[in-house]
Simulated assay, not measured.
Amino acid sequence: MSVDLKNKFISHMDNNTQVFSWQVHENLTAEEAKAAADIIISTVQSNSKTTKVNLLVDNRFMERNGRSVVFTPDVNAIWEEAQRTVFPYVAKIAVLCSGTLMKMQMDRISRNSNIMDINKCFWNDNDQIMLQEAFDFLGISSNDLVKPKQG
């Protein structure tokens, strides 16, 4: 069965900066998370033949009624397994969070995946500051997919 991620999961590989970025716009079901994880794993593995890639994860849109939405335990397990799988191919991971609750969840997932050494989660009320911190961490000045939030 095919899973349609069109409006929930959007990804982009920048071959110039070796940054694979993606945005999650809504909470994912386990089936959708598995499909997204497959895209992440295959993209990272196919683009890391000569050098490790950096990941830019944009979860800033994971909100409902002005509050952070966190992933369900079954989706967390899928993310943890995906992180363990791509770890050998990745130099750094920057995760943009929608709030402090999501930042705590993402920090916990990275601890459980044993990727804390290369992973950093960001949260700031000021979107511009958060983006700049993440870009600085990855050593990039911009990203074609991840832009400042509008409004």
Rank of each mutant, 00 (worst) to 15 (best):
G66I: 10
I109N: 07
M102P: 02
K147A: 01
N119E: 11
P88M: 04
F87T: 13
N15C: 09
G151P: 04
D14F: 08
K120Q: 13
S11V: 08
R60P: 00
D136F: 05
V53M: 12
W79L: 09
I41Q: 07
K49M: 04
D4I: 09
T51C: 04
V69K: 04
V24A: 04
L55F: 02
K8A: 06
L145K: 14
T51H: 13
D74Q: 13
Y89I: 02
I140T: 10
I41L: 03
W79R: 08
S48T: 12
G151A: 13
I39S: 05
A77G: 05
R84Y: 02
K8P: 01
F122D: 00
L28M: 15
I78S: 02
F135K: 13
V53C: 14
I129P: 03
M106V: 07
K147Q: 10
S68K: 09
E81G: 05
T29G: 03
K34C: 01
S48W: 05
N126Q: 07
I10W: 00
R111P: 00
V95M: 03
D38E: 14
S48D: 06
F122T: 02
K147V: 05
D136T: 14
Q150H: 14
N112V: 01
T85E: 10
M62R: 08
Q23Y: 00
T50K: 11
E81S: 13
S141Y: 06
F9N: 01
Q83V: 01
E32T: 11
D58P: 08
T72A: 12
I115D: 13
F61G: 09
S142A: 11
L56H: 00
Q128F: 09
D107Q: 07
Q18M: 08
L145M: 07
S42Y: 00
S113R: 01
W22E: 02
I93C: 09
Q18N: 15
S113E: 04
V3G: 00
T17A: 09
L55K: 01
L28F: 06
Q105D: 01
K149F: 09
N124V: 05
N47V: 06
L131W: 01
C121Q: 11
F61L: 14
G66F: 08
S2Y: 05
R111S: 10
E31F: 10
S98D: 04
V90D: 09
M1W: 06
M104T: 14
K147I: 05
G99N: 12
Q150I: 15
I115K: 07
E26T: 07
Q23T: 07
Q150S: 14
A33Q: 04
F135G: 05
W123F: 15
H12N: 14
P88I: 01
M1F: 05
F137N: 04
L101H: 12
N119K: 07
C121F: 01
K49W: 00
S98L: 10
A82C: 13
F135E: 03
N65F: 12
H25S: 09
D127A: 12
D127S: 13
D117A: 14
N47F: 02
E133F: 03
S142V: 04
L55M: 12
A30Y: 09
I39V: 15
N47Y: 04
K8M: 01
I78D: 00
Q128W: 04
D74T: 12
S42C: 03
H25M: 11
I140R: 08
Y89W: 06
